[in-house]
């Protein structure tokens, strides 16, 4: 049931497909962009809320 597609971290990094192409670079860069933009948005709002509550106190 729980079978990894990749046998090692290096393999997961490269993500070589059956046609021989390495797709890891695309998948990983999208993953990083998504995580960074979501995280940055969270940080922005948390900081802004903190700033305004401090001012209101």
């Amino acid at each position: 049931m729980f079978n990894f597609e990749f046998n090692s971290l290096a393999e997961a990094f490269l993500m070589q497909s059956q046609n021989g192409q390495n797709h890891g670079i695309f998948v990983w860069s999208v993953l990083i962009i998504v995580f960074v933009s979501i995280l940055a948005t969270f940080i922005f709002y948390k900081m802004s809320i903190k700033k305004i509550t401090k001012k209101l106190k």
Binding site: E5, M15, S17, V30
Partner: peptide, 23 residues
């Protein structure tokens, strides 16, 4: 990204679907 098999046409690049479609 790591457990599902690759796609029969797109190979591993299809894995971007898990990030693209929700957004």
């Amino acid at each position: 990204l790591f457990v599902t098999p690759e796609d029969f046409v797109q190979g591993n690049s299809y894995r971007i679907i898990y990030l693209h479609v929700p957004a």
